[in-house]
């Protein structure tokens, strides 16, 4: 009744999502969307973790996903706070305007 889906398919999806997330980080100038792209990449990684956990029959992969989620939650909280501060100072959130460290 059930068709077994190969591990590589999940990994392929994960891979695709990860690459698109990376592309999003690189081509978008809105820091909020960059953050979302990062979340996308994390999700892709999580998917790979869960797929591997399922494939090898151990729960450790799921536990790692749990930690990743926690960290990304913390990261998003701090990152959004930073974006707010930057907006307060620059009245813009364009990351290309934030180049005062230019050498």
């Amino acid at each position: 009744m059930t068709q077994i889906i190969p591990l590589s398919w999940y990994l392929a999806v994960s891979m695709l999502l990860f690459s698109m997330g990376a592309l999003g980080v690189l081509i978008r100038r809105n820091p909020l969307i960059i953050f979302m792209s990062i979340e996308l990449m994390l999700n892709a990684a999580n998917l790979a973790f869960v797929a591997f956990a399922r494939s090898f029959g151990v729960p450790t992969g799921q536990i790692f996903v749990f930690f990743v989620m926690t960290v990304s939650a913390a990261e998003v909280a701090v990152g959004l706070a930073l974006i707010i501060i930057i907006f307060r100072n620059k009245h813009s959130i364009d990351v290309d305007l934030m180049n005062s460290l230019k050498g």
Binding site: I4, P6, M15, I27, A51
Partner: peptide, 28 residues
């Protein structure tokens, strides 16, 4: 960025299907 992402994708695919041979079905 597009080129690099594409290269990354190609590399990962190559890794996935040529090198690791992870074509096996999930265990259960």
């Amino acid at each position: 960025a597009i080129v690099l992402a594409a290269v990354l994708l190609v590399e990962a695919g190559f890794l996935l299907f040529q090198r690791l041979q992870l074509t096996a079905n999930l265990a259960s």
